[in-house]
Every structure is written in structure tokens, then in C-alpha cells.
Design a protein around this nucleic acid. Sequence first.
DNA 1: TTGAAAGCGTTACCAA
DNA 2: TTGGTAACGCTTTCAA
Lengths: 340, 340
Amino acid sequence: MVTMTDVAHAAGVSRATASYALRGDARIAPDTAERVRQAAQRLHYTANLSARSLRSGRNGVIGVAIFELDRPYPSEMGAAMSREAARHGLQAIVQQTSNSKESEISILRKVTSQLCDGMIFSPGNVNDEEIRALSGGKPMVLLDDISPDPVFDSVYTACIEGSEAAVRHLIDIGCKHILIVGGTYEDLADDGKSAGVSIRRMLGSLQALEEKGMPIDPGMFLPLAPWDSETARVCAHRIVDSGRPVDGVFGMTDTIALGLIRGFADRGIRVPEDVAVIGFDGISEGECFIPSLSTIRTDLDDLARKAMGLLLKRIDGDSDDAPVRLTADYELVVRESTRR
Amino acid sequence: MVTMTDVAHAAGVSRATASYALRGDARIAPDTAERVRQAAQRLHYTANLSARSLRSGRNGVIGVAIFELDRPYPSEMGAAMSREAARHGLQAIVQQTSNSKESEISILRKVTSQLCDGMIFSPGNVNDEEIRALSGGKPMVLLDDISPDPVFDSVYTACIEGSEAAVRHLIDIGCKHILIVGGTYEDLADDGKSAGVSIRRMLGSLQALEEKGMPIDPGMFLPLAPWDSETARVCAHRIVDSGRPVDGVFGMTDTIALGLIRGFADRGIRVPEDVAVIGFDGISEGECFIPSLSTIRTDLDDLARKAMGLLLKRIDGDSDDAPVRLTADYELVVRESTRR
DNA sequence: TTGAAAGCGTTACCAA
DNA sequence: TTGGTAACGCTTTCAA
């Protein structure tokens, strides 16, 4: 391994000079700096990030923790974060929490442990207080934080407005018998404030129904666990087999919506002719599907920009303000699954 | 930030003793060790990985570099690697190379830079020599390395055998006019040895055709760049519009195959009734698609197990052997897209 | 404009 | 069984 000492030696300067030269400090004479750079290149020198981090507390690495790497939405989000980090000359490292508390804790420790300068984190099973204790004061931005009084900056998906737009769209194209898949009406009652994604998507749906003067019936809300396409597929079978009238469905994620369409197809129900289906997220899988999926697309580039912006501000110490909450842009994307 | 010194102080022992105690060294008296552990827990101590890495050269982190985080196959692979790392008590960090040389180099530098103990790397635009120069002697396992004389251990997808199985399956179900999408026949000629994924998938396809005594025509092989579903969709349009007879298609990746099916649907061509379609990879998206996609599924758990096994052997210094090459298991999965 | 030297938090050697 | 101490490679202050 070639170290800074080697480079300094090869260039005939001290370690300090080499360090300054390589980071472009103005105090070093141009020709000295050039000599050092040449030596570094010749020796294939790369800075030891552990040493740098240990000494200066910074290493240019941003941690991104998402639920599952093998699901489209979180992984597209991780990709957006990586791109955004690169735009700032930083390197993102992505870790999956597997939606387990143990794993979330282990990842949070890594932040404390100086693996990265800060972290963007999707909390699942761990609350703000636990995060604070584990973060050791390192900057952190949360995604869709459900804490009632926040400790960290957070960026939200536009669950309420987006779901409202989704259900409004179903009503606008003439749906009379709408189903919302992903949560139950009962959950709405006991949870006034600490509203998770599922609750907020129900709230938005309700707003659209009320606004349009549609009848509201608790039976319109169907729970689903886990939120995956196979479960949704089975759910669609049950909907059809129950014989209840349905002409529009809002799946709380695209993955759910695609599973529903697949389940309807299994029973000979056509989308959009018999039932219109709309999802939420905007994963790229929906574009290629047959029929292509209408959805509320979260602008992941905007989400990444906002999250990274907040994080970098904290990292640079420019801000000691109270926690900030931002919401990512979204857009209604109308495709074949609701076109009629 | 609470350090080992704080813990040692709180437990009334020296730093050295605290260090040994926390890592369960047998030399420390049980009650001393317990006292140290209690203190560490009470103070929310977490080891500084940078310091550990700097001193001992190890920090329990494994790097995984994949092309794109937002494509199903690489991200499912990243997930498999993360699970496998966790099974060994290690933490995987995933980085995307965005298939750019600059980015691959920047990531390789991170290995050298002690961010992780070793790396699993999908080389795209960087050759073995460059990797060796940049890796600074750190252990590395490559995926589908195309180098003629390898420097590193490598794990391969079963491109040749898998593609052979795919095309054989098309022939078995009665296809007479087969197309292979993802590479051109001309590429086969100049590239005898350093065979990339595309070339190897063509070679396997050819073997099946020969074995079954089917006529071979260079026009059967259609290039595609980039390998994504939108491009494949357009390709399907062109196939249909050309009017050539086709009753079976092998898409070199599932993403290609799904795009082809979508493109056929755009032109009213039914899969599998008019054209049977099979892909390669086994991404979960194919299960839910309409029709569900037949494919050669790479066993990603097996791939991860083999790659991690090789890497850990090198990290532990158990092996100074010549580079090892292993191949991941695969399986033919027959679904609706070739069922008739 | 450059160099010497002091640490950052940890581990590992050696001595007690 | 424990403690002192010297590194690991880098950055940064202070002097020259």
C-alpha cells in the first residue's frame, strides 16, 4: 500500500506539503503541487479514507439505508440518491435494512462508527428516540418519518395529495365502485397524528371521495400484508370471487397495483375495460406492463435533491435550526390501466 | 462521541483491557469483561470503524459494486449479496457503477482506501490490469470477468449452458423460426476467447440449434443497445413490421424479453400463441407479468454464496492459490410465455 | 512557501 | 490477567 509518506518522499517534500498539494491548497507553489500530483499518479496513490475520516471527521461518503434492495421502489430511490451524491462529488453507499429492527440498529451504528459523514434513512421499526441515541450526533435525514415531534430533518412522499389525485382520477373517468387496497378503515380511527404511509394514503383517498360527494363505506378499504404483488394477486381473486361490484381500484403501491391487475387477469377481468387500476410510486416496471400502469409518480430526483440538500447543510454545520420537513414533488401519470 | 477511552475509564480498566474485553478475548477475566460490556452499553459505545480499519486493516464491511441500482437483476443480486454478508456477520455496502469507467475507477479506489475489507465487483469498462493497479492488493472477486488470463477469483452466470437450455426449450415446444435478441453474429467471429456475456449467450444458443439440427442463419441474431425494455419494445415492432416469420424468441435478459412481449402486444401479436418468448436472469418482475415469463433463472443465492466464499477465503488469507473460477447454478423456469 | 509534530480512536505487542 | 505504549495514515496547527 502506497501512503502519503511515499508520495511526499517521491516528490521530495514533507507529508504536510503533499497533503496540501493534493487537495489543491492555494498556499503550495504551483510547480511543487504539480510535482506532488505527478508522483501520486505515478505511484497509484489513493488516500486512505479511514485515516482521513479519523483525523478530519469527514470522508465524502453518504450512507443510504433502504428497506429492500430487490424491490423496485426502494432500489430506484437508492439509485436516485447515488446520482445526487455523485453530483456533489460524494459517494453513496446503499445498505438494506430488510425491514428488521436488528438490522436497522446495526446500520445506524455504522454511521456513528464514522463509516459515512451522514445518512439518509427510511425508518421502519425504530423510533426517533432510538435513532437519536444510536446516531451519536451524526447528521441524518429521515424519509417519511412518522414521529409526532421530529428530531431529524425529513422528506416525505406526497401521500395525502397524491392519493387524493389518484382517487379523484378514478372518479373523473367514471368509476362508481371504488376499492382502496393497502389499509383498513379501522386503522384510521386510533391513529390521529402519527400517520404512517398507509394511513396517509387512506386519508388522501377519503378526501377525494368526500370532495366528489361519493358515498364512503369502510368496506372500500382492504388491508394487505405484506405489500407485495403475490399477496395483491390473491386479494384480486378474492375481490372477484366475492361478486361485489367494482369498477376502479387504487393500489397503495405500484407493486400492489400490478399484482391486482395480474389477479384480475387470472379471473378474466379486463383492465381497464372492466376495472380501472391506478398505483402509487411510479416504478419503471409499470411502463412496460400490459396494460401499462397509471400511477402517482413520486419524483425521485426531487426527493433525492431535497434529502441530500438537507443532509449536506447539516454536515457542513450551516444549520442548527429546528428539524425541517419537505415533501417531494409528484405527478399523476395516466397510462393504459385507467384509459377508457 | 464516546470512545473506548471513555468506556475503559467508566469500567475502571485500561484501554487495552477494554478493547480485549469487548471483542471477547479469552484472556480477560469474566467479571472484568462483564463490567466493560455494561459500561459500553450504558454509554451507547460503538466502535469507530475508521480507527479499527486504520489499525487492524479490517472493519467487517464488504463492498458490492453493481451496474445500476434501479434495474431488477443487479439490484436483486445486491440484495442476495447483502443477505449472504449478513449470514457471515458482515455488512455489505452497495454502490452503483452506472456502467461508466470513471465511476468504476472511483469505486475501486474506495477499496484501496480501506472503506471495506474486500469487494465483489462487476467489471464493465475496466480491465483486469486496471483493476489490479487500483485494488492495491485488496481482495476482490469479479462477476463474469471476461479477462483471458484472470488475476482475480471470479463467479460466472451459466451463460452458455443456460442459453442452450433456453433455445432448446423453444425448439422442444415446436418453434421453427427462432430469433435471438441481444447480440450480432458478427461479434462471434472476432472474439474467440475474451467472451463477454452477450457472446457466451450466443454461443449457447448456437449449440442448441446445432444439437437439434436446426438451420443457422446470421439473421437470427439481432443486436440491441442498450439492453433495456424500451429498446426491446421498438425491436419487437421492427420484427413484426418486417413481416419475417417468427414463432420463438430468446431475449438475452428478462428485461429484454419483457420489452419484446410488450412490443408484440402493441402490434397485436399474442404471446405465447403466436410467438413464444423466453428470457434470462429470473427477475421477480417476470412472475407477475401478463403473460408470466419463462426464463433461465440464475440462482442468486448460490451466486452470492460462491462469491462471498471466495472473497472471505482471500480476506482471511487462507489462500494464495491461482485465481478460481466458479459458475452459479441456474434453472429453466417454464411459465406462460412459452406454454402451449 | 514549507516542515515538524501532535493527535484522531483503535489494536497489538510486550512487560508487569 | 492486566496495563503501558507504539503504531496505523492522515490533517492541521504552529514555527520557521
